[in-house]
Design a binder for these strands. Structure first.
Length: 359
DNA sequence: GCGATTTGACCCAT
DNA sequence: ATGGGTCAAATCGC
């Protein structure tokens, strides 16, 4: 039993080390390292499980033999339970941090269609990751909503001269699209905190002070909205009770994930026929895309001539996403340019975005 | 010059 | 009537 527990503790230790490595060296983590560490952990726990299994079966044998199963037996069973509890408390459940939707936002929206539950998951670095899937309405898919033309000249906005059209013919709000709520700890970069990169490129389109909340809510839409008509949006807000935690609400699905026929790609992506690599033609089209998050990792085929160690921090942070990416992800080439050239985090602007009203 | 961000106003759901 | 989501002109920054 002692040996089993020793193995378990050792496994926990290894897991913690791996977690620490990942959190600290998230930009330079290598698949080899991940693989070896994972194997080590699995081996350690497997050994413990084997010991516990054999111990358990021997206990059954001794008790069935009518021997002195009494005191010693119950003690052994209790120890096994304790050991198994140890395993659970160590977070070695099906959901590890790398399988959490927070780290796989590509998966999360799809998950929302499955159920509407709150799923507490392991604690990480003192901050609790929670994934809450709000109720959804599959019937409308966000297709309805008020459509109203602005009466000519009715606008009182000083920023909208009477001569401007001022029409918002396609305006919709509060559609019942799926909403997936995440609570994520802030990533500290220097003296500032910002939400962790979620693997998408977002463009901020608004910020509001919310009644009763200390911190403003920021509104983002997918950067590729104009390119691919992607309707994905998200809202980001710091929690009153924990300013170092952000609540991120994802709305809508990323149609830019699978679109192979971008609406405006022809006008935005000049083709350089002199270059044979799939990467080159889109470099000029998307280099200007700079938002507060780094962009999506390239698909397998997109890792042309790029090793993990060569990747920039803002791209290698997506290792987890990249490693498990759905092979069917046929995201257009513009994202590859994002990955190659997007400098990623713009913490300075985020400082301004997520200021505290009381600061 | 161009794209991203800021921010006041508009509009709609409740 | 009000709060929240969005628009779009102004501004910023590369």
């Amino acid at each position: 039993m002692d040996e089993a527990i020793t193995n378990i503790l050792e496994g926990c230790k290894l897991a913690r080390e791996l977690e620490t490595s990942i959190m600290k060296q998230v930009f330079n983590i290598s698949p080899d390292y991940l693989m070896k560490s994972s194997e080590e952990i699995v081996t350690t726990f497997t050994a413990a499980m084997n010991l516990l299994t054999s111990l358990n079966s021997s206990l059954h044998v001794s008790s069935s033999m009518g021997g002195e199963a009494g005191e010693g037996g119950s003690h052994g069973a209790t120890s096994i339970i304790q050991a198994l509890n140890l395993l659970q408390s160590a977070g070695f459940e099906q959901q590890s941090m790398f399988f959490h939707p927070t780290h796989y936002p590509r998966v999360a929206p799809q998950m929302a269609t499955v159920s509407a539950v709150a799923t507490p998951v392991m604690e990480l670095g003192g901050s609790r990751y929670v994934n809450v899937l709000e109720s959804t309405n599959p019937e409308d898919g966000g297709s309805h909503g008020g459509v109203r033309l602005t009466p000519e000249g009715s606008s009182g906005s000083a920023r909208r001269p009477a001569g401007s059209t001022g029409q918002r013919s396609t305006r919709r709000r509060r559609d019942n699209a799926e909403r997936v709520i995440h609570r994520v700890p802030a990533v500290r970069t220097g003296n500032s905190e910002m939400p962790p990169d979620d693997g998408y490129t977002w463009r901020k389109y608004g910020q509001k002070d919310i009644l009763g909340c200390r911190f403003p809510r920021s509104y983002f839409r997918c950067t590729h909205k104009n390119y691919y008509g992607c309707e994905a949006k998200k809202q980001v807000q710091r929690l009153d009770e924990d300013p170092y935690t952000y609540e991120v609400v994802y709305c809508g699905q990323h149609s830019c994930l699978t679109s192979t026929t971008p609406l405006l790609i022809s006008s935005l992506a000049p083709v350089n026929t002199a270059v044979t690599s799939a990467v080159a033609p889109i470099i000029t089209s998307a280099t200007a895309s700079t938002t507060y998050v780094a962009t999506n990792p390239p698909g397998e085929s997109s890792m042309i001539g790029t090793t993990l160690s060569e990747m920039t921090p803002s791209t290698s942070i997506h290792l987890g996403n990249w490693l498990t990416r759905d092979l069917a992800d046929t995201r257009p080439v513009a994202d590859m340019a994002d990955v190659l050239f997007n400098s990623g985090s713009s913490s300075s602007s985020m400082d301004a975005i997520f200021y505290s009203k009381h600061d």
